Deep mutational scan, measured.
Amino acid sequence: EWCEALHSFTAETSDDLSFKRGDRIQILERLDSDWCRGRLQDREGIFPAVFVRPCP
């Protein structure tokens, strides 16, 4: 499952995944309604679900 970043997100901890608006992120797991775990290029981490939308 893939999503597109609606806003940029800067990691606040070593577990977070930083990304820029427009990045396509592979969703690996939905942790709960607020957080997802994903992969961007060679990095993995968690990020807020409200920062992304599903890719068509």
Rank of each mutant, 00 (worst) to 15 (best):
S33Q: 11
R30G: 05
R30K: 12
T10F: 09
R43M: 07
E29H: 05
P48L: 01
E12S: 14
I25L: 06
D34C: 11
T13W: 03
W2E: 13
R53H: 08
L17Y: 05
E29A: 10
D23G: 00
P48K: 10
S33M: 10
K20N: 08
D15L: 10
C3K: 02
P54M: 12
E29L: 03
E12A: 12
C55Q: 06
T13R: 14
D34V: 11
S18G: 09
G38L: 05
D42S: 11
E4Y: 11
I46Q: 08
I46N: 13
D42L: 05
D23I: 02
E44A: 05
G38N: 02
S33T: 10
P48S: 06
F51M: 13
V52W: 02
I25N: 03
K20F: 10
Q41E: 14
C55P: 08
A11H: 04
Q41D: 15
S14I: 10
A11S: 11
T10Q: 14
L6R: 06
F9Y: 15
G22A: 03
F9A: 05
A5H: 05
E44K: 01
L40K: 09
L17R: 02
R37A: 03
A11P: 09
C36V: 14
D34Y: 11
E29V: 09
I25C: 00
P54C: 05
G22M: 07
S18C: 06
F19Q: 07
A11D: 01
D15H: 11
D23W: 00
W2Q: 04
T13F: 08
V52Y: 04
L31I: 13
V52T: 10
D16W: 12
I25F: 04
D16G: 15
A49I: 09
G45W: 00
L6G: 07
F19D: 03
R24K: 15
E44T: 06
L28Q: 04
R39Y: 04
Q26I: 14
D34P: 05
Q26R: 09
D34R: 12
E44N: 05
L40W: 03
L40S: 07
C36M: 15
L28N: 05
P54F: 11
F51K: 12
F47M: 07
D23L: 00
A11I: 03
P54R: 08
F9Q: 06
L17F: 11
E4T: 12
A5S: 05
V50M: 14
S8W: 01
I25Y: 02
L17E: 00
E44D: 06
W2F: 15
S14Q: 14
I46S: 08
D34M: 10
W35S: 10
W35A: 07
E44F: 01
L6E: 05
E12V: 13
R37N: 02
E4P: 06
R53M: 09
D15N: 11
P48A: 00
P48I: 00
G38F: 00
D42T: 08
Q26F: 08
Q41I: 06
H7E: 15
L28P: 08
C55N: 09
C3Y: 12
D16M: 10
I27T: 01
C55T: 10
P56A: 07
D15M: 12
R30H: 12
R39E: 03
P48T: 00
R43G: 05
G45K: 01
R30E: 05
T10K: 13
L17W: 01
R24V: 12
D32W: 02
A49S: 13
E1V: 15
F47I: 04
V52G: 03
C3R: 05
L28G: 00
R53D: 11
D23Y: 02
G38Q: 01
G38Y: 02
D15S: 13
L6F: 15
L6W: 07
A5M: 06
L28K: 01
D32G: 11
R37E: 03
W2N: 05
F9C: 11
A11V: 02
V50Q: 15
Q26P: 00
S18L: 00
S33P: 11
Q41M: 10
V52Q: 02
L40C: 12
T10P: 06
T13G: 14
H7P: 01
E29C: 10
D15R: 13
E29R: 07
S18A: 11
E4N: 05
Q41R: 13
Q41H: 13
T13D: 13
G45P: 00
G22E: 01
D34H: 12
P54I: 12
Q41F: 11
P54S: 10
C55V: 14
H7Y: 13
E12M: 15
E12W: 07
